[in-house]
Structures are given as C-alpha cells and as structure tokens.
Design a protein around this nucleic acid. Structure first.
Lengths: 380, 380
DNA sequence: AGTATTAATTTGCATAATGCAATATAATAA
DNA sequence: TTATTATATTGCATTATGCAAATTAATACT
C-alpha cells in the first residue's frame, strides 16, 4: 500500500468488509478474507496509522477466554469526498466524511445554464467548503457530479438533460470536469448516484447484489453486482423506465403530475405534492395502479438479476414510496410461477440528498476492491 | 504461480486475454493488461513450459521494423475437462481439451434413476474416456455436471427435475458428487452450462457482458457480467422463463409441443420436429408469435442488463432459433422509447452438445480471473 | 554491404506483499 | 497459581512484480 488514498487490493477488501459489518476484529477479517492474520495486522496498523481506521475494545465480547479482540471501525475523519447535484434550477453541493455524514452543504441558484458557469460555481462552492472545514486536500478522495438524464449511444458521453442541451458531451474517460475541480472527478446520473449512496451509506452496505428503483419525474435505477455498480453497454443497465413505455400509464412522477393536471388539480412541481393531495381519490387510485406496476417490475428484476434486495427510493412523496414498499411486503407471491420467497424489498434511506450519492463515487474509486486496477499474486 | 493448474491472478488474466483474442504477443499482453513486459515474459514462459500455451511466429506481422513478435496461443492439449449431461432418459459424457474440442464422448442409457446408479455410471464413463485417451489426471481440471431444472429456495441445492425427484439435494458447497468422480466437480443447470459454453468455446469468447436465451422444453438462460456468470440470490438470474407465465402462451418448446398436439399433429418429443412440421401454417404462426415474444424479451434484457450481446440457443429446431435471430436482425427499433441501437443478437454456436457447457465449468474455475480466490499486491 | 533505427523480449536486481512459525498478550477456567 | 485459549504481533522466507539495462532480429537509410 503506497499512501493512504492509494489502497492495495487487500486493504480495499478490509475496508469493504468493515463497512459491511460495521466493525470487525483482525482475527475475523483474516478468517473472512482468507488471508493470514499477520497480513491483516500489517495492513490494518498501517491504515490505523494513516487515519483510515480506528481501533477500540470489542463492545460485544464479554466473558470469553483468550486475548480480547480489538475491533476496527472506519474512522469518519479519515476520508472525505465532495458531491455535486445539478438540476435545471439549482446546484446542490456537499462534503461528506467516510461515515457518510454531511460535513457541509450548500444550495445555490444556477448563474446561467452554460457548462462553464455551472461547473465554475459548483467547483467554487465545493472548494469553499473544503477550505472552511480546514480539510487536507489529500484526504479528499475527489468530487462526484450527478444530474438527471440517461446516456447517449456511445456510452462514453452523458446525455444532457433538456435544460442543459447546449452543454458539451462530457467524456467519462478524459474528463472535461477535472480542470474545474482540481481533483479527481467522476459523474453518473441521479438514479445511479442514489444507488451508490445506499451501497456506501444506506440500507445496502452489506449487500453484494441489489437493484434500485428510482422514482422521480422519470423512472430510473441501477444494479449492483458483486459489490460493483453494473453499468452495461450504453450505461443503460437498471434503467427500468424503458420497461414502461411513455405512451402508456406508468409509475412515474411525471405520470402522477399529468394525472393530477387532467383531474383539474395542477401542481407546479413534484415537491408541491402534500398530504392534501395524497388523500384525493384520484391519487389513491393512481397509487394503487402504480403499486401493481412496481410489483410487476420487482418480478422482472427478480427474474433477471435475481438480487438479494430491491431498494425503492426517489423524489416522489415519501409516503407514496413507503406505500409501494408496504404493498410489496403484503405480497406473498411475487408473480405467476415464481417459486421462491420474494427478495428483500426495502425503502431507500438516503434518497433525500441527491448530492450524497454523487459524493460516494470517489469513495468507491479509492476504497472498493472491484475498482482496484492493480495486480495480484500468489497462486492459491 | 504454483503448479500448472494453480494459476495466479495475472496468469489467469493472460489466459482470458488470449482466449478472447485468439492469439496475442507478449508485448500486446503487457500493454492491454497493464503489467510489466518482464512479468508477462516470466508468466508466459512458465505457462509455455507447463504446456498451457504455445508460441509461434506472428502470422500477421510482415514488413515491420523491430524484433518480430511471437504470438501465444492456448495449447489445446494443455488442459482437459470432463462434462456430464443428464436427462431423464440418458447420460451424455465427454472429455474436451482446452480448445473446446471433443476428445471423446459417450451416450448411455440410465441404469435406473437412483442418484447413486446415475452418478456411478457417469463417473465410470468419464474415467474410461480419460484412461482411453491416456491423459494425465493432473491435466484434467475436473468434471462438470449439468441437468435441466431450476434451483430451490435456499440456492445451495439443485432442484431435482421431476424424473429425479427422489435424488438427494445436492449441495453446491460440500459436494456430494466429488466421491464418485475423484476430481473437482461443479454443477449447474442446462441453460447456464450452455451459456458458459459460449463464453469459453462459442460466440462470446471476447464478450465480457452478455445474456443467453435458452429455448428448450422450457425457457431458461443466464447472464455473464464482467466475464463472470452472474447467478443471483437463488441462482435464478437470467431464468427468463418466469417472465412468460406458464398459463399463457409462451415461446417454449413445451408450448409448441402443446400447440401441435391441439392442432392434431402430436409429436413424441421436441427432436421429432422436422422440416415437414416447420412448413405447417400452425407452426408458422407459432413462430411469428414467439418471435414477437422473444423481441420483447430482448427489450427487457436490454433494459435490465444492457449487455453487449444477446445469444439465442437451445434444443428447439435450429431453423426456429435461426428464425428468431433473423427476426431480431430485421428489427430496427428494439421497442418503445429505446433510443439506442439494439445489442448484438446472435445465434449460439455450441448448443448442440449440452455436455460441452458442463465441461467448461472446471475450466472456468482454474483459468478465469474472476474465479480467482487469492490476493493481490501493489497499490496502484 | 554496412550502419542506424526500431520494437519485442529477456535478464539482473530491487522492492513489495504475503505466508509461516514462533512469540507475546490478556482474558477465562481449573 | 497455573493451565488453557484466542488474538495479535514479529522475524524470516518466499513469491510476484517493476525497473532498467541488455539482447535480439527485423527494417530503413546511406
């Protein structure tokens, strides 16, 4: 392991294992990772010295023989990351620590919609936060940038959303964004960022294979396979929206929006939906219909990815999302001919802060074993 | 790298890269894998010495400056593997070499349907073939066993097919099969074996992400993500059949079977279908309807896994399968709102020998980097 | 023909990651 | 007080790898 933000493969495996379990002793790590205890000692002491992990007495252990294990935890102050979320009206930025806690955040209006203005403003906000917090830039893994939209054909460029349609195609490889931020920058769309937020700081920290259903104006999502976000040929993996043609009724925010409008109850934007709307018969029946569509989607997901967990989240009113999860919990049989118990279907816990998921991107890059680009030794 | 069947991570990466490209020089390998040329030299010379690879003058290179590159190929005789396929009536066994060529094969009737009798007979057949070929057992990676059926709830046990319903649950972990064969044994169902056959010896040797649609009496399949078969929570990933409830019409062999029966043209089994059947109007309309269902399935696959390639194969009459592929090639737009060009949709090349895919299982275990259980070094 | 240039490959040496085995440590059990 | 137990650490050997220099065999140039 070179420096602290340059973790080797086994150090990343240790980070992932501790993140998944919350806390683990060195002996546990050695057993579960199949490496020698001596190796765990060496790697972890270097990570403790480097500030990435902390060590404390095992709170669980009482009255057992043998040397009492010390447990290792992720040190929140060992690593930071910045996140930027853009929508057509505003820029949201944040800085998080390794525990996924928001250390600072900011919301600003778009100066104008030019690529340069938006990125300059976002970068300025992020840099100010890092400065105000007095953080060592070496501790900041990078900055994640996220905005709604899907990917273009060649999969190397982000499809601009309508409001940003004059933006340059942003290559994922040689990043146009890096010059603005002066640190590693990664980007993805809103749904896949939300998915990553659950993997790192939400309800799926201990789940290797899960799928995310993201319900906002549109229907997006993502899939994590083996602890790694699976993107696909044109970054379209887990973009479930296409399974519900736009010409038909579908369980999207836009569809609910339009339904309300047709019923003579126009709203300005999705977040205007309040309790008074939820009580309306038109909304009630919309929710019933949409719940059935979500159930069908869960069946499709179970039949394709067969994940351990399906997460439901988004910017739809939380009670609507809760209702979808509740509906799924009442379903005993997922669908025709489905012989198994349903996968675990849960509510997202971190969908309130879209910039949080963006901030998880650089953390993934520097700590996840699946993102390790190095080599391995020892025939086994 | 310890012994020849105990390949380290980078040796496996070299195997995978050569397998995908057909042949590659050491310099190419060093560049594409991001390792030092010296490392490639050391690993490959040891693999050539060990008989896994062969070296020859680069046939492509003509009239270029510099030291002429020698290319490396997989040596067919360097590694062997056995495969067993069981259906309710017969046992099919084979031994293949590293090139996926059938070195020997055998077909025998089931002695009876008891687990012990079937496995004893299969193991005897495999051992005889290995003996008759005069193979060194150290060169045999193991034996793969495959039979139709899906998995039980707990995902650690194979669901027995109806005819084998008195069989013990076969644990994937501590294998009940090993004692019979005296070498490492792995098993999977028919569809996932066929999927693996395409990855190792078929049309997807150079594809990291693909999905397989297996059409037999039922509808099965599999998904390969990042060069690794993705199985899922209950080994149900890529089991597309559940997307077509059995109560409705569906593009399965059983459905065609029943359709013919209803039309007053009963057949004994799927393989009885001949050219005379294909010409019948009832079959023609079945094929048209089924093709549309396959198209819908391809859309679902594109929207979920977003693979580079979709492979269509199975035990249905080859002309019917060809027809599905042809249909997909004529489709310019995969479905509503699908903005991208369709994934590459191709005909399986190795679905004629179900035991071949089973035989690929042990080869995967000993040569694939994703199946490597070891460690890594070098922060990068 | 002879020399320069080029690119692939190989070899010697240094370094890094790991495993093994012995040892130290701190708890409970007898 | 001593034995037992499980965790953690340290010294040493092994292995995989990178780096840099050397070797090799081709074409290009004079």
């Amino acid at each position: 392991m070179a420096n602290d933000l340059n973790l080797g493969y086994n150090s990343r495996r240790i980070m992932a294992s501790i993140r998944a379990s919350g806390l683990q002793s060195r002996a546990d790590l050695a057993r579960s990772l199949g490496v020698n205890p001596a190796t765990v000692t060496r790697l972890t002491t270097s990570m403790v010295d480097g500030g990435l992990l902390t060590e404390e007495a095992d709170p669980r252990r009482q009255g057992l023989k043998g040397y009492p294990a010390k447990v290792l935890k992720i040190e929140p102050t060992g690593l930071y990351s910045a996140g930027v979320y853009l929508d057509p009206d505003r820029i949201r930025t944040c800085v998080i620590n390794a525990a996924g806690e928001i250390m600072a955040n900011d919301e600003l209006a778009l100066p104008d919609r030019s690529f340069q203005s938006v990125m300059s403003a976002a970068a300025k906000s992020v840099k100010e936060q890092i400065n105000d917090l007095g953080l060592d830039q070496n501790r900041v893994a990078g900055c994640g940038v996220s905005y709604p939209g899907q990917y273009k054909e060649d999969s190397l460029r982000v499809q601009r959303i309508k409001q940003f349609k004059d933006w340059p195609n942003v290559s994922i490889e040689q990043d146009l964004l890096k010059p603005y931020f002066g640190m590693p920058v990664k980007h993805t769309n809103d749904a896949k960022a939300a998915c990553l937020a659950e993997l790192y700081h939400g309800v799926c920290t201990d789940v290797e294979d899960f799928c995310y259903i993201w319900l906002s104006y549109g229907i997006g999502g993502g899939a994590v396979v083996g602890g790694n976000p699976h993107l696909g040929r044109v970054q379209g993996a887990g973009e479930w929206g296409g399974l519900f043609p736009k010409s038909n009724c579908r369980p999207s925010g836009q569809d609910l929006f339009d339904t309300l409008k047709e019923a003579g109850v126009p709203i300005g934007k999705l977040s205007d939906i309040g309790l008074e709307h939820l009580k309306m018969p038109i909304v009630y029946s919309w929710r019933e219909r949409a719940a059935k569509q979500i159930q069908w989607l869960c069946l499709v997901i179970a039949r394709t990815f067969d994940p351990k967990t399906i997460v439901i989240g988004g910017t739809l009113h939380p009670q609507i999302l809760d209702g979808f999860v509740d509906h799924m919990l009442l379903v005993s049989v997922l669908g025709d001919d489905y012989q198994h118990s349903p996968p675990n279907i849960v509510r997202a816990s971190r969908d309130d802060l879209p910039e949080l998921g963006a901030a998880a991107l650089p953390i993934h890059d520097v700590t996840n074993p699946t993102a390790y680009a190095g080599k391995a030794n020892k025939g086994w």
